[in-house]
Design a protein around this nucleic acid. Structure first.
Length: 343
DNA sequence: GCGACAG
DNA sequence: ATCTTGTCGC
């Protein structure tokens, strides 16, 4: 594939990422005094109930611009839930002041729940993007032609994020150095949408590396690839956007089930959507070594097949839970993030 | 009560 | 991911 201009790819992607805080703010204006909405209802209005936890935690943040009306958002059970002041009775007081009846710690939703007007649902649009995204045809990977492998990870200090790409030789365990990029992050973490939070960083970093001539031939990405509710995890989207072969490496399972009953150190076990779909392998789980009880979840990103993926990841293990490129990127990004903490 | 889902 | 003390083990 002809080399992509990653500067342009990064700009185009950034352009398409919506501002969820803006959308939530607009929705909250539709919840008047004397009525309530639920966390899930607001998330659904944004396009996916998967965002309900983010809605709840965002409204609890001390510096949230919506704090003064956050008492109007309650749980789907009618329980009033938590309040940013740290005092639940304060939330109850505010609700009662606005005419909302709270009895037994609960609000009668049938009587007080607001009806939200259907508007632009940013998460629904992103979900559609994931479903429709087609990775450009990639040339078959020649593992012997791979010179360098990169590990990509991100650490945070508040809303400041630090992305690091750790470069390694093709053996997967010989370090060559790091490249890093710091940036403000607005998009929240919502299960299934990690790409929209972290890809802007990764793409900026890779565009920078392309300029320096240090772009790796293969990338290990923190997060999933095909092992994703819509088969479009961050590793897959990154590979499709850049044309660089990618592998997704996750420490926790996002979906699917393991076919086998047991896990043995060093053995790759397929993950499928359900046990009656054994022919459609989404990814693999593996215990890197006998010392760990917690497995890794590895899946194809883009431009590489399962055998090659297992070969590359297996030879990148060196005593840590994660493959060395990911482990190194994790440590370096945390180091830099801790540097920014008091700055 | 059960299930639990990347960073 | 981050917030956090001590504690167990190489």
């Amino acid at each position: 594939m002809a080399a992509m201009d990653l500067r342009q790819v990064a700009d185009a992607f950034h352009e398409r990422v919506p501002d969820l805080v803006d959308s939530l703010t607009k929705q909250m204006r539709e919840v008047p005094s004397g009525s309530v909405a639920t966390y899930g209802q607001l998330a659904q209005a944004l396009g996916d109930t998967a965002a309900s936890r983010w809605v709840a935690t965002w409204l609890l943040e001390a510096d949230c611009p919506l704090a003064e009306i956050s008492h109007r958002v309650v749980r789907s059970t009618g329980e009033i839930g938590l309040h940013f002041s740290g005092d639940v009775s304060e939330k109850k007081r505010r609700l009662q002041n606005e005419g909302v009846v709270v009895s037994g710690g609960k609000v009668e939703l049938g009587r007080f729940q607001v009806e939200l007007p259907a508007i632009q649902a940013p998460l629904a649009a992103l979900k559609a993007w994931q479903n429709e995204f087609v990775c450009p045809q990639a040339a078959p990977l020649d593992l012997n032609a791979v010179q360098t492998i990169g590990g990509l990870d991100v650490s945070y200090t508040g809303h400041q994020a630090v992305a690091v790409c750790s470069r390694f030789e093709a053996d997967g365990t010989s370090p060559l150095g790091h490249a890093s990029r710091c940036q403000e992050v607005r998009f929240p973490y919502v299960t299934g949408y990690l790409a929209f939070r972290e890809l802007p960083l990764h793409l900026e970093l890779l565009a920078q590396m392309q300029t320096e001539g240090t772009l790796p031939d293969l990338l290990l990405v923190d997060g999933n690839g095909r092992l994703h509710p819509r088969r479009m995890g961050i590793a897959t989207m990154l590979g499709g956007l850049t044309g660089i072969p990618t592998i997704g490496i996750a420490k926790k399972k996002i979906c699917g089930v393991m076919l086998a009953d047991q896990l043995s150190p060093g053995v790759w076990e397929p993950i499928v959507e359900a046990k009656d779909q054994a022919n459609d392998i989404l990814g693999y789980t593996i215990l890197p070594h006998a010392k760990t009880k917690h497995p890794l979840y590895v899946s194809i990103g883009h431009g590489i097949d399962s055998d090659e993926m297992q070969e590359v990841v297996s030879r990148s293990f060196a005593g840590h839970r994660s493959p060395e490129p990911i482990y190194a990127a994790d440590r370096e990004s945390r180091r830099i993030a801790s540097t920014l903490a008091t700055a």
